[in-house]
Design a protein around this nucleic acid. Structure first.
Length: 1023
RNA sequence: GGGCGAUUAGCUCAGUUGGCUAGAGCGUUGGUAUCACACACCAAAGGUCACAGGUUCGAGCCCUGUAUCGCCCACCA
């Protein structure tokens, strides 16, 4: 065996594990050995995870540390199971956030705006920035110990992702699922871009409510409307009242004369917008500047006008002569002037301005107030995409852990809101559409035809003619065209989408388009458009790569619940859309209800269920037959694991701005990566949030006491390993013959017991991982190692290791337990286990085949097989705990009587029967050593020796002799009597209930009777 | 307003199809430099399982309601 030993930077005698340099060396070793490299041509069932790409803008925080630790646990464990495991790392370009950061820098350092430097220069600067910060994130992931295949690191803006984006956009465009629409968007006047609902936050702002009188034309009456944004009244196009409102319904159909502008605008009835019970019952309608009013405009279908008041940078425009007096004013200034003029004109008095607190929407990126703004945007039509994405979750082919998170996913998709994908930014995937606007007459397209039928045009380089044939894989060639007619301007705009052509055809095609007067859309795509393709774009789609064939669908997606809708849902939609077999896809996607044909979906579900019922081994993962089904319909993953959000001690989300965030690297520096990982794993419960009380350490760094759990554990593991390694070393312990055959008939009780416990722990770990209960996994291994192995078996072994009849076998058992513990722990604490593994290999290079442990031992733990649960010894599992209880009781008496810690006491026992007596006698040295006593008499029914203190455990009376302390004994007896009396009363009451015996299970009733009897016997003895 | 989650020891959290005296880590108290480990070991104290009803032989767990906290969605003229 040629075990590449990590350099021994931690001195062998150090009692503290020092992770600082060891971790770096071990990580370098893994990289050198290419331990994380995945090969699609290698054997082994695939197991794939794609990282949720962190935003390039931010350093990682503890939330990322948790997310990536869990993924690493899954990948490392799968790798040990012999699967062909791939973890794809990468980073998200995070459009708005990144551009905003660099623009801010530009402003601060050079006092320039993006317009001063220009598009190309700004993008170049962002790339520089990206290089620096992206590398920092990758370094952080490596410090965490992440076993990603770094050669496959992707960036959502790299060429591989760009191809996938162009291909997807083109397909959507061709299939009629991308369209151009004038919509009310959330406009960020600072960044001058639209942003999605998800990039907003609400904040309560103290403002006013203005009440304005609108004179009703042709009468002497007026209506009062209330508004929190008086400046928008300039662009009002109607006033709405409830049709059933007796105060106002007579006015429907009349007009009001809009103050300051002199325009006549209609009074309309709208039962949805207007709440009769609220205010005056009359509502001003400004369709271009309020989402609800915009909805009214849509409902009224042409009956009212829509007027845009704002310029992209937040000023009053000059588009309508009626508000010319205000043109050029910023909205804030316009508000002041409008209010002054309204008061001056008698439409309002000071008393009509009331204090009001309103929720205002702010841009998460620029922290400025959002303006609803009418603008031209590209949209993805969601209905068929969303429907198919809902189907696969309802049918359990995509499963959430915990299951309740599916609700949020389904609720959001159920709204099927069209997805605005264009962003007025420079940093991102440029929209691959070129447009040209010409007078309508030239085209002869009827004015009511909003979007023309889609024409297919052939690729100039393609000699085969019309190439608009659907290819589920492979590049889609050519050009697609949509035309949009503008009724008002009597013009037609032609939009041409350029497909994902190979170079130089693509450049040539673009050049010919531009020669023809077409101009590329200046906008870029929403970041989620590219990250939504992540599971297949990173594997090389649309090329038919070996990676895509082997590793797609991925196995599980691990993420937090905040991006279930933003990201998870979109990956499912685009996954199906881009990867499903052509045979199961609907034909006319723009009009279909779902991407999948009803027959295709039904067949998939039934095949899925059939495959599930045939599964023999249930490790929680889909069977290979199920993967085939998933592949057929293009699912990006079968499982979605949602882990808790980490909050600070006050229950607040960690964030940079609040200053309560914890940098994982600071924890790694102070506690070690393994310690952090173990602590995080124990926190990964099924709950929504976990709290991490944060405090400052001496250097002013944020830290938390919670990580001491992990650090202490690593120290314990280090020290226990030192002990085991020296105990099994024949040079130090000649009795520990390494070449002795394994013979479990020569094992001590403790040996049998610990092997049983180990095998149960393996089963518990498997079960926990299959259900993504990382806390249970970590806890069960922690408890096994610390409580069972260290506190009991090692202490027992100190006896048998010196006994030539047992030493060789106990050394075998200890070797196996260390071996097995390292394997079980490796996914959680990879560094320290790898370090100890090399020492174990050096100490015992050829280890015997073992109950539960695979024979195969690799030089590196990272590639060593995962254990399978093996033999248990029922008898030992029954007897050993009884001895633990006896020992515990003796220790308790010693402590209560304040017996000197080093004094050997004399103990007599009255076990409940001969069998129990035999068990004690057979292991008397064990009891004597662990309880520091000398056993005198062991005999059922033994009367209490004089001057002895008494304890009872499960019917076994334990007498510690020569302890004379009447007060202590009296107190103990009184306390015990009280306990017994209470429990006797409770049991008698239970048994007295006539229904108990009838309805409770027989074994429980019998058990209660037995306990009652035991308690009465003991009580009688005490009195 | 709708949805989700939480409420268990001083703190952070487990608690399986309802079933024996509700557990862990940290902290607290007492003891221990014993030859793996004081980041340890040995023991102890500490809980009206948020509150009120209900179902059940039996409720931390199931049902109804209430309170408090957190998150998501919608609305706020």
């Amino acid at each position: 065996m040629t075990a590449p030993l990590p350099p021994a930077t931690t001195t062998p005698d150090s009692t503290r594990y020092d992770p600082t340099t060891l971790e770096a060396e071990i990580y370098a070793l893994w990289l050198r050995e290419k331990s994380f490299a995945a090969d699609p041509s290698a054997p082994g069932e695939p197991y794939t995870i794609v990282i949720p790409p962190p935003n390039v803008t931010g350093a990682l925080h503890l939330g990322h540390a948790l997310d990536n630790t869990l993924q690493d646990i899954l990948i490392r464990r799968a790798r040990m199971q012999g699967k062909n495991a791939l973890w794809v790392p990468g980073i998200d370009h995070a459009g708005i956030a990144t551009q905003a950061v660099v623009e801010k820098q530009l402003k601060e350092n050079e006092n320039k705006t993006r317009h001063d430097v220009g598009r190309e220069a700004l993008v170049a600067r962002i790339w520089e920035w990206k290089q620096q910060y992206g590398d920092r994130i990758l370094m952080q992931l490596q410090r965490l110990g992440c076993s990603c295949d770094w050669d496959r690191t992707r960036f959502t803006l790299d060429e591989m992702c760009a191809k996938a984006v162009r291909e997807t956009f083109f397909k959507l465009f061709r299939d009629g699922l991308i369209f151009r629409g004038k919509r009310l968007v959330n406009w960020d006047i600072h960044l001058q871009t639209s942003i999605s609902d998800d990039e907003l936050y609400d904040e309560a702002v103290k403002t006013s409510m203005w009440h304005i009188k609108y004179p009703i034309d042709g009468t002497d009456k007026h209506m009062v409307v209330a508004t929190t944004r008086p400046e928008t009244m300039l662009a009002d196009t109607a006033v709405a009242v409830h049709p059933d409102d007796p105060r106002w319904n007579w006015a429907i159909g009349k007009f009001v004369k809009l103050p300051l502008t002199g325009r006549l605008i209609p009074i309309i009835g709208d039962p949805i917008l207007v709440d009769m019970a609220f205010g005056s019952g009359a509502v001003k309608v400004t369709p271009a500047h309020d989402p609800n009013d915009y909805a009214v405009w849509q409902r009224q279908a042409g009956a009212i006008e829509i007027k845009n008041l704002m310029t992209p940078d937040g000023k009053v425009n000059a588009e309508d002569p009626s508000w010319a007096a205000y043109a050029g004013l910023r909205f804030n200034d316009a508000r002041k002037k409008v209010v002054e003029d309204l008061i001056a004109g008698g439409f309002m008095t000071e008393e009509d301005i009331k204090p009001h607190e309103a929720n205002v929407k702010f841009s998460d990126r620029s922290k400025t107030a959002i303006q609803p703004y009418l603008s031209d945007q590209w949209y993805v039509k969601m209905a068929p995409l969303a429907e198919s994405a809902m189907q696969v979750v309802k049918d359990d082919m995509v499963k959430f852990f915990p299951a309740r998170h599916a609700q949020q996913y389904l609720a959001w998709l159920g709204e099927k809101r069209d997805w605005p994908i264009s962003r007025q930014l420079w940093w991102g995937h440029r929209i691959p559409v070129w447009s040209k606007t010409e007078p309508a007459a030239k085209h002869g397209i009827s004015a009511d035809q909003r979007i023309s039928n889609i024409r297919h045009q052939s690729d100039p380089g393609d000699q085969s003619g019309d190439s608009a044939v659907y290819h589920p894989f492979g590049p889609t060639k050519g050009l697609e065209t949509q035309s949009v007619t503008d009724d008002a301007n009597k013009s037609v705009t032609t939009f041409r989408c350029v497909g994902n052509l190979e170079e130089p055809q693509r450049t040539a095609l673009i050049a010919s388009l531009e020669l023809d007067g077409f101009v590329q859309d200046p906008d870029v795509l929403d970041t989620w458009f590219s990250s939504g393709l992540w599971p297949h774009s990173t594997l090389g789609w649309p090329e038919k790569t070996a990676e895509l064939a082997k590793y797609y669908p991925t196995s599980v997606l691990v993420t937090g619940r905040d991006i279930i809708t933003l990201w998870v849902a979109r990956m499912v939609m685009t996954g199906i859309y881009n990867n499903a077999d052509a045979a199961v896809l609907s034909e006319s996607l723009s009009s279909a209800e779902s991407l999948l044909t009803p027959a295709g979906a039904a067949a998939a579900v039934s095949d899925w269920q059939a495959a599930a019922s045939k599964a023999v081994v249930n490790d929680g993962l889909p069977t290979s037959a199920q993967r085939d089904v998933a592949k057929r319909i293009g699912l990006p993953f079968n499982h979605v694991c949602i882990h808790p959000t980490i909050l600070d001690g006050k229950g607040e989300r960690m964030s940079k701005s609040k200053g309560n965030g914890v940098d994982p690297v600071e924890i790694i520096d102070t506690h070690g990566a393994d310690a952090m990982r173990l602590t995080l794993a124990t926190m990964a419960t099924e709950t929504q949030d976990v709290r991490m009380p944060v405090k400052k350490d001496a250097q002013g760094r944020n830290t938390s006491d919670k990580f001491e759990l992990g650090r202490n554990f690593c120290t314990k593991l280090w020290n226990a390993s030192r002990f085991i390694l020296s105990s099994i070393d024949v040079a130090q312990n000649p009795l520990a013959k390494a070449d002795a055959a394994v013979d479990d008939s020569k094992w001590t009780l403790a040996d049998k017991w610990i092997v049983s416990r180990f095998n149960r722990t393996v089963a518990a770990a498997d079960e926990a991982i299959a259900t993504y209960r990382f806390d249970h996994y970590a806890k069960s291994v922690y408890d096994f190692f610390w409580n069972d192995l260290c506190n009991w078996h090692i202490e027992s072994a100190k006896l048998s290791l010196r006994d030539e009849n047992h030493a060789a076998q106990t050394a075998h058992v200890l070797t196996a337990m260390l071996d097995g513990t390292l394997r079980l722990l490796h996914p959680i604490t990879p560094f320290i286990t790898e370090a100890i593994w090399s020492k174990l290999n050096a100490a015992r290079p050829n280890r015997p085949v073992w109950h539960g442990l695979p024979a195969s031992v690799s030089p590196l733990l990272v590639k060593t097989p995962w254990p399978t649960a093996g033999k248990t010894f029922e008898d030992a599992e029954h007897v050993f705990p009884r001895l633990q209880e006896v020992i515990g009781t003796i220790r308790n008496v010693r402590n209560e009587y304040k017996v000197d810690a080093s004094k050997v006491v004399t103990v007599s026992l009255a076990p409940p029967g001969d069998e129990a007596a035999q068990a004690v006698l057979a292991n008397r040295e064990l009891v004597e050593r662990l309880a520091l006593c000398k056993l005198n008499q062991v005999q059922p029914g033994l009367p209490q020796p004089v001057n002895s203190a008494r304890g009872t455990m499960n019917g076994c009376d334990i007498y510690v002799e020569n302890l004379v302390d009447p007060e202590a004994e009296k107190a103990r007896t009184a306390k015990r009597c009280e306990e017994l009396t209470k429990s006797i009363a409770s049991m008698e009451q239970r048994l007295a209930s006539p229904n108990y015996a009838d309805k409770a299970p027989a074994h429980l009733v019998a058990q209660t009777r037995q306990q009652l009897e035991d308690a009465k016997t003991e009580l009688a003895k005490l009195k």
